[in-house]
């Protein structure tokens, strides 16, 4: 049975990747699962300079989910390339770097380094960051802004596949996916976390030092699936589905809605081998349904909807 999928120019042995920020730099998980069994590994978001992140508390559990305000703590792109990547490169699994910045120049600088680094298979840019040069408005909240950063990054990336990770905190997602396609992105991944708040009624203080945080986990799955469905239906660009995937069923739902691949996030915290289990569950599903090529299953729900 063939679980492999195609994301633009990138061929993956199976559609299950790990989501940025939930799988460290990958090696943290080597004790728990065979990293070679994954479709791809997306590492923690990288900025040009190291970032210390937010003050604690940074996480808070909510109903069937969690809020996080890590503040993009990371070692910086140079340190990643010199100290983390060499050990990761030994695995036969594509490494996708996740890049972020507060200006278009920061994005292009980070991506330029990554594009010239051996062992990086693709770059995913996280556009859920404030643009400090334009009054802190997020790159992710106006299609034109998303398009501009995508276009600038595309120019420095050469042939390397480029994925744009979209924010769900917008009124209409489709124009963002269109802007990415027009700017030359090879795929979009959606979604990043939903912005939320939690407070303590006794102390009248926020549960997170940052006040707001990003909601992830099973709580967001229906919201994320709606967005994936809209983009898959209306825009001709490969979509990577993310949000609340805990098991193979969740992952296959995203694929039925049209996603060519998925990313597993919060589930890695609960069972560090979750992504491996999901690959196994997909194989079982295909065997039970007589599916020989999983790729043919992509969009099964969309086809049913239009027929």
């Amino acid at each position: 049975m063939d679980l492999s999928v195609q994301i633009g120019p990138l061929r993956l042995k199976n559609p299950v990747m790990t989501a940025s920020g939930t799988f460290g730099y990958g090696l943290e998980f080597a004790d728990y699962l065979d990293l070679n069994a994954l479709g791809a590994i997306v590492v923690k978001g990288l900025s040009l300079q190291p970032r210390p992140g937010n003050a604690p508390p940074r996480i808070y559990e909510t109903a069937a989910g969690m809020l996080n305000a890590i503040g993009l703590q990371n070692v910086g792109v140079e340190e990643f390339v010199t100290t983390k990547l060499p050990a990761l490169r030994q695995y036969d699994t594509p490494i996708i770097a996740n890049a972020l910045g507060n200006t278009i120049e920061e994005y292009t600088e980070v991506c330029r380094v990554l594009a010239h680094t051996e062992g990086i298979a693709a770059v995913e840019i996280n556009v859920s960051c404030p643009n400090v040069k334009e009054g802190g408005i997020h790159f992710a909240t106006e299609p034109a802004q998303t398009g501009r950063v995508t276009e600038a990054v595309r120019r420095v990336m050469g042939d390397m596949p480029l994925i744009v990770k979209l924010s769900p905190n917008v009124t209409h997602i489709v124009p963002f996916a269109r802007a990415c396609r027009a700017a030359g992105a090879d795929a979009v991944s959606l979604v990043n976390t939903f912005v939320g708040i939690a407070i303590d009624l006794d102390t009248m203080r926020p549960r997170l030092s940052n006040l707001t945080g990003g909601l992830s986990g099973p709580a967001i799955k229906p919201l994320a699936q709606r967005l994936v469905w809209e983009v898959c239906r209306d825009v001709d660009i490969p979509v990577i589905g993310i949000g609340g995937i805990m098991n193979a069923t969740d992952a296959l739902e995203y694929m039925a809605l049209g996603a060519v691949a998925v990313q597993v996030g919060t589930a890695n915290f609960i069972r560090p081998d979750a992504a491996r289990q999901i690959v196994a569950g997909m194989a079982d599903f295909c065997a039970a349904r007589g599916i020989t090529r999983l790729e043919n299953f992509i969009g099964a729900f969309l086809r049913r909807e239009t027929s």
Partner: peptide, 11 residues
């Protein structure tokens, strides 16, 4: 508070 317990989430 802990998310993962294994060093991955930075929570």
């Amino acid at each position: 508070r802990m998310g993962c317990g294994l060093g991955a989430c930075l929570g």
